[in-house]
């Protein structure tokens, strides 16, 4: 799997801590099982040695924590970032959410993370997962070991990985990859080709499962407002009631709209949804439209780029034509 191992990261982190260049490290901490890894802050070598974890389940995108964490002390923070995390990192820099000097980024290579929910479809009550070049062996409590192909247990965001390129790093482990032409819009096109009634039923079925827990908003690195409109009682949309289909539609359209043009397609929203609603398909629809209407744009590709919704040209597409071009069998 990655020839860069946990120990490489730990020794480098210990060096940086010892040299005083950074005063704390944002990494992951082991839990009860192999997959329940929690983002955690390490300040000394001893806790790093004991608890630091890095492997197939360190999928959490840590860039959002930096907004809060950089305010807490003057020192630098060391943070390990997969390629897709660095896009969110750049997008947050574009929006001046923290200053670049307070963060020391080490880019780590990534061959795609594993998704515990997809593993559980194949192997119930599993406790440990070992992955190597020819696949993944999952050892379960009652059904012995289950051999699986890696692509069966990778989340959609990794199967349709858009880029192995680190767009921001102070130091890089392993060599840098490039952007990949992935089929990340296939699913969106499949939905677009449905008839309006089918599309409505599909989304009503998906969104009706929403339990309004706000996990998708709270984990999204593009959603970093100090005070979200959904937490503001007199905004009228704050309604916590999963009362009927309208509330869910309103919440998800507005959530996706607020990150339109800024969403880097990191897939965190779908990773954390307890009801496994494919929320990335909403954000990807906006990305596909923006690329189609206003030219290829990847949020976070470079710091300071002007997001599509705060920019314009005099010959943009008219809204009435925008929808006609949507699908063939309109």
């Amino acid at each position: 799997m990655q020839e860069i191992t946990r120990d490489t990261l730990i020794s480098r982190a210990k060096e940086l801590l010892a040299s005083g260049e950074v005063d704390r490290v944002y990494g992951w901490k082991r839990g009860e099982f192999c997959y329940d890894v929690t983002p955690a802050l390490f300040t000394d070598a001893e806790s790093l040695e004991k608890d630091f974890e890095w492997g197939d389940f360190c999928g959490a995108n840590l860039s959002k924590y930096l907004v809060e964490e950089t305010r807490k002390s003057e020192g630098k923070i060391l943070v390990f970032m997969k390629p897709c995390d660095t896009y969110s990192f750049n997008q947050l820099l574009t929006e001046h959410r923290f200053d670049r000097e307070k963060v020391y980024v080490i880019g780590t290579p990534c061959a795609g993370m594993l998704d515990p929910k997809r593993i559980r479809d194949h192997a119930e009550s599993f406790t440990s997962v070992v992955s190597d070049e020819n696949g993944v062996t999952v050892s379960t409590l009652f059904d012995g070991d289950v051999k699986l192909d890696r692509s069966e247990v990778m989340p959609d965001r990794c199967l349709n990985c858009k880029s192995k390129k680190h767009v921001a790093y102070d130091e890089l482990f392993g060599e840098d990859g490039g952007t990949i032409a992935s089929g990340r819009f296939d699913e969106v096109e499949k939905i677009e080709k449905m008839t309006p009634d089918e599309r409505f039923e599909f989304w009503r079925g998906e969104l009706s499962r929403c339990i309004r827990c706000n996990a998708c908003r709270d984990v999204c690195p593009a959603c970093t407002c100090e005070k979200c409109v959904f937490d503001n009682p007199n905004s009228g949309v704050e309604n916590k009631a999963a009362e009927n289909s309208f509330e869910e539609q309103m919440f998800h359209i507005i959530r996706a709209f607020h990150v339109a043009g800024r969403c880097t397609d990191c897939g965190e929203c779908s990773r954390v949804c307890p009801q496994q609603i494919p929320l990335h398909l909403l954000n990807r629809k906006f990305i596909k439209d923006i690329d189609g209407f206003y030219g290829e744009y990847q949020a976070g590709a470079e710091v300071g780029s002007r997001a599509p919704l705060v920019d314009y040209t005099t010959e943009d597409i008219e809204p009435s034509d925008a929808v006609k071009g949507g699908d063939e069998n309109a």
């Binding site: 983002p39 802050l41 827990c213 996990a215 709270d218 984990v219 954390v272 307890p274």
Partner: peptide, 24 residues
């Protein structure tokens, strides 16, 4: 330290009883 403050644990929990009363 890394808790996001979302409501997932309380809304999937079978014993969480807290509620809010609101006017619409």
């Amino acid at each position: 330290e890394s808790c996001l403050g979302c409501g997932t644990c309380t809304f999937v929990c079978p014993t969480c009883q807290c509620y809010d009363i609101k006017d619409f």
